[in-house]
């Protein structure tokens, strides 16, 4: 049975190049590459392999600034059929409550959908709330931290193995539903050349607040009961000591220090 699959993605600063301004407590955005949130690549892979197995269509959707179009193009290079960006100045400052509202309004614009897949959490916000929150907004059953996906009845029923603190649950659910996936669920595919060429020319649909008929009280700062008051960079203030002398002397001194500290 062909499925309409929606994958939510977020564009985030590349962790490999990101730096922090310790004094201001902010991320230095200049000269930092923007990438697809790493675990969202696992969500994309999950969506694309469902399409490979059952047929259907994969739509990637994102809320973000206009430049997030590039992230959606990347998903098309991987094999996604359609990219949708929800972008409006009034979305700025949205917390997870407002974000799930905006994403739900955007997904409702797509018409019929069977499966919504989200990465477990973004590497910048790190809340892991958007997936389950979005399920509530859309009125869908939600299964979080899915480690294994089994398709039954030609896509009429899905069996998931869900990670818990003490072990795992096995959950069965009929579409439509929402799942969130952790890293290491799968190996995200690389783009293909044909995909990259298609991505270059692809039309990315952009919806603003008006298009999705968003209630302005529910979005942005106004729709966000939580506020980030300050951000602090972890400081590593451990005592430093440089050992000197020959290699043998340094090793002897190091063993001595480790013994003093009770580590050896």
């Amino acid at each position: 049975m062909p499925l309409n699959i929606v994958v939510c993605i977020k564009q985030v600063p590349d962790a490999r190049t990101v730096r922090f301004d310790a004094e201001k407590g902010t991320i230095i955005r200049e000269g930092v590459d923007a990438v697809i949130n790493p675990v969202d690549l696992n969500a994309l892979e999950a969506g694309l392999s469902l399409k490979d197995a059952l047929g259907g269509e994969v739509t990637a959707i994102s809320m973000g600034p206009p430049q997030a179009v590039e992230a959606l193009r990347e998903t098309i290079a991987m094999g996604v059929d359609k990219g949708v960006l929800l972008s409006d100045r009034s979305f700025a400052g949205s917390d997870t409550l407002a974000t799930t509202y905006i994403l739900a309004k955007g997904i409702e614009m797509l018409g019929r959908f069977d499966v919504v897949i989200c990465g477990k959490q973004s590497m910048d916000g790190d809340t892991a709330q958007v997936g389950p929150g979005l399920a509530v907004r859309l009125g869908l059953p939600s299964v979080a931290y899915v480690k294994e996906i089994t398709v039954l009845n030609d896509g009429g029923l899905f069996r998931f193995r869900r990670e818990t603190d003490s072990g795992y649950d096995v959950v069965e659910v009929e579409p439509p539903f929402l799942v969130t996936v952790p890293p290491l669920l799968n190996t995200p595919r690389l783009p293909s050349l044909k995909g990259k060429m298609r991505a270059k020319k692809a039309d990315i649909t952009i919806y603003n607040a008006n298009d999705i008929k968003a209630d302005l009280k529910k979005i942005g700062f106004e729709g966000s009961p939580t506020r980030v008051v300050s951000t602090a960079v972890h400081a590593f203030n451990a005592r430093k000591e440089m050992l000197s002398g020959t290699v043998e002397e340094q090793v002897r001194a190091l063993i001595g220090r480790l013994k003093e500290a009770g580590l050896l």
Binding site: R189, L190, P191, S192, L193, K194, G195
Partner: peptide, 10 residues
């Protein structure tokens, strides 16, 4: 991987 990347059809 090379096949999936379309490189055999270059």
């Amino acid at each position: 991987e090379l096949a999936k990347a379309d490189l055999f059809g270059l």
